[in-house]
Each structure stands twice: as C-alpha cells, then as structure tokens.
Amino acid sequence: MAKIVINQKWCKACGICYGLCPKGVLDKDDTGKVVVKNPDACIMCRICEEHCPDYCIKIGG
C-alpha cells in the first residue's frame, strides 16, 4: 500500500488531484480540501503529486 502524505494546511481546494486521480483514491472533505478515501487503490502513478499546484501531496513518504 502506497504511503500518501497530505499537507492540508497548504491545500486550497482546487480539486485538481481528485479530478485527475485515475483510481478514485482521493476525495474532498466538506470544505473541498483533499482527503485520502481509498489508499489501497493507489497505483503510485503520482499524477496528483505532479499536478498539485500547492505542494500538498507526497506519494511514498
């Protein structure tokens, strides 16, 4: 299982990460910020990490 580290303090709820995630790993909380919903489905493609404009997501620690 991939280790997904989220820095919610820097998140601005733009929705790019959960919009682009091909496996539905990420989701939004009630403020629109990113949360990890289904970590087991992560295939470590790093699309979220590469496309997060706010440096909030680290895959693999």
Binding site: D54, Y55, K58
Partner: peptide
C-alpha cells in the same frame, strides 16, 4: 518527486499566494 525538491522551496513562505487551481505552482 516532491520529497527531493522540498529543500529547494522556502518553506516558511508557503503556502504561496497563487489562486486555487493556478498552474504557476506546477510550472
């Protein structure tokens, strides 16, 4: 990978001022 480039960021200045969804952070 983010962990490799964190040292090149001025962490004390983050989060940056760019709007939600702005592509500048990605560039």
């Amino acid at each position: 990978m983010l962990k490799d480039i964190e040292k090149l960021l001025r962490q004390d200045k983050m989060p940056h001022i760019w709007c939600p969804g702005c592509g500048n952070g990605i560039v």
